[in-house]
Design a protein around this nucleic acid. Structure first.
Lengths: 185, 185
DNA sequence: TTAGAAACTGACTAATCAGTCAAACAAAAA
DNA sequence: TTTTTGTTTGACTGATTAGTCAGTTTCTAA
């Protein structure tokens, strides 16, 4: 692993344990096994490090999700696939999950930032399709997207809090139906 | 307004603008119009100030909500009343809303803290009733509570982002139905 | 070989911050 | 009045931090 990646991974772990301000840049460098100076070589400021990490996570979530959505699938199947991929990704990448949670409630986060990302674009396309086809309630697409994201987060938090994994298919479906029913007509 | 209250109000505003770590205690005192020392007289540490603020908000949310739930109401009416009260409270108290959002994603927050509060108890009682009566899905009560809370937050964020208020009853109902449908059988 | 660029180091600094403390002040009790 | 108790002040401190920089090593390509 190159030093840039090593720094991002270490920062993600420390941030998710101690928060952005609770983690000194010097500590990130030390625990990543590199010099203090090299952190500022790759990321001129701490803020830029944090923003770079945000895009790193969103990119990986996109790569993880997009391959799983098949063209022939129904709308509900596609939404289920995206929902499940997001829940799995967040369960498997605990530090990413915590980092994003903190980022999106911090002053760093601006909606424009998120909007530009292709992951969000992918989701919004599906939602638009669902509204056109009359399968979704008459609600603004962005609200549907935000609601779905919140449901994913709630689900992941709940599973983690109870040390659960998605091994029970029947229960997994029941969790998804919660999210689906809030959007579907 | 006494100095203790003045400190809490000022801190809430500054925290919601700049975050916990982005706000120096000295600045809170200065903008509250009191000396630096008096802050530490009322709140021995910054952490204790933050925790005191959390309970202050939850207490006020409880007071705002509890008076509106009537004994004779149906379950759905009661849930609607609580949902609406929470949305209204968060819209009217923007700094409280931002503060709680930050607090609950920070290392300060532990679930035990929340569980002890009578506001949560009030909600869980209603949810238990809904499960007993078979009106809710077969889902753990705590997940229903968390899901409902997340829906409130999403709704408030959406309304604020679009500079909207709850003046359109029909639209308000549609927003509530989103939350309700995810829980109801 | 060599020149120049890029990666890398770690000691250093200027600024910031949470929390302290000795002293002043106010209010009420003795 | 005197004493006691609690409130308030703001200058101060020790610790911490983001970011710098002068210099070294490693890579690349001519």
């Amino acid at each position: 692993m190159d030093k840039r990646t090593k720094l991002i991974e270490t920062a993600k772990r420390l941030f998710s344990e101690n928060g952005f301000y609770g983690t000194a840049t010097a500590r990130i460098a030390r625990e990543a096994g590199v010099s203090n100076g090299i952190l500022f070589h790759y990321f001129p400021t701490k803020d830029l490090l944090i923003k770079a990490m945000y895009f790193d996570v969103k990119d990986r979530l996109f790569d993880y999700s997009v391959g799983q959505v098949y063209k022939g699938a129904t709308l509900k199947e596609s939404i289920y696939t995206l929902w499940l991929a997001a829940v799995e990704f967040n369960l498997e990448n605990a530090n990413d999950f915590e980092f994003i949670r903190q980022f999106e409630t911090s002053p760093y986060y601006r909606t424009e930032t998120e909007l530009e990302h292709r992951y969000v674009q992918l989701c919004l396309e599906l939602i638009d399709k669902g509204i056109e086809e009359g399968q979704f309630k008459q609600i603004p697409p962005m609200l549907i997207f935000k609601s779905m994201s919140a449901q994913v987060e709630t689900t992941v938090r709940f599973l983690k809090m109870n040390n659960m994994v998605l091994d029970n298919v029947e229960f997994t479906h029941r969790l998804f139906e919660m999210a689906w029913d809030s959007l579907a007509k």
